[in-house]
Simulated assay, not measured.
Amino acid sequence: MIETPASIVADRKSVYGLRTYISLFSSAGIGCYGFKLEGFQCIASVELLEKRLKIQRYNNKCTLDSGYICGDMTQEETHNAILREYDLWHNAFGIKELDVLIATPPCQGMSVANHKKGNELKRNSLVVESITMVKRLKPRFFIFENVRAFLRSICTDVDGVDKSIESAIDSNLSGDYNILYKVVNFKDYGCPSSRTRTLVIGVRKDQLEVTPYDIFPDKQPEKTLRETIGHL
């Protein structure tokens, strides 16, 4: 029997209750670390390279050590590892549903910075693994983040048809989710560098009092690098 971590006990008693998320293609865990800072519990974090997961462990990102999943998202065994971790939380800690699924699939095939592109269709299609997990886990919210060209890049969808990533997201998820697609520059949201990215925010349609616009971040004044990390 798993002993309930103190952080989960405390969150259950808080005004917000126990809030959870799963992160796919999580790299060193920096992109979704803000959820931890806001009090969310990380059920699972999936990354292909173990050395990146070591950074996440150092930062205590996942609540349970079993949540660090080193695996290939194209493999069913990795999907099963995620589902097992979710089931563990369901059975041991009583969560009824996942709050947020975050995915930042590799973007080399879409990035203008990649000048050595070959056949990138396979890498672009990794987003379909994220779509599949949203369909399987049915989180209340999902967030996909990637480069500016993300939505118009071509992927091979779950039906085997090559189509734009935006079309793949829409055809698979728009029946259950209200979805906002938006290109933003992170410097307008407190990031100390000019970084243009695509955000896709989905809100499950049974969340009647919430829209994607409600949870979209507010703009913040630009910050310098010194203002951001000068105290370290």
Rank of each mutant, 00 (worst) to 15 (best):
F25M: 00
E145H: 02
V200M: 00
N59M: 12
V183N: 08
V9P: 00
G31N: 07
V183F: 11
S194N: 09
A6W: 10
Q108Y: 08
N80T: 10
V158K: 09
T104P: 00
I179H: 07
G31T: 01
S130L: 13
I2K: 09
V128D: 02
E47T: 00
Q41M: 14
S153V: 07
V46L: 12
A113V: 04
G190T: 11
L49V: 06
T4Q: 14
E3L: 15
E166L: 02
T78V: 05
F141W: 08
G17N: 03
P105C: 06
N114A: 06
K116I: 07
V183P: 12
K117L: 04
L151V: 10
L24N: 14
D176Y: 13
Y21D: 01
C191T: 14
T20I: 09
P105Q: 07
E76Q: 07
S125I: 03
F93S: 05
L64S: 00
E97Y: 11
F93L: 11
A81K: 15
D214Y: 04
F93N: 04
E120I: 12
K61W: 06
I229P: 11
S130F: 15
D206W: 03
F186Y: 10
I154C: 02
V112F: 04
L208Q: 13
L98E: 05
I131R: 01
P106R: 00
A92K: 11
T4M: 15
F141S: 05
D206H: 02
D157F: 01
I229S: 09
F40D: 07
V158M: 13
M1K: 09
F150N: 07
A28N: 11
L48V: 06
S23H: 13
E3D: 12
R152H: 14
R195A: 07
A28F: 13
G34D: 09
P5N: 04
L49F: 13
I43Y: 00
A44N: 07
Y189I: 10
T228N: 01
F93E: 03
R136I: 15
L173M: 12
D11E: 15
S194W: 00
G118C: 07
Y177S: 03
R226T: 14
S153L: 09
D176P: 07
L83Q: 14
I169R: 02
A113Q: 09
R52K: 09
A92G: 07
D11H: 14
I30D: 10
F216I: 11
Y16H: 15
I215Y: 11
A92V: 03
Y213G: 05
G29Q: 03
G202L: 02
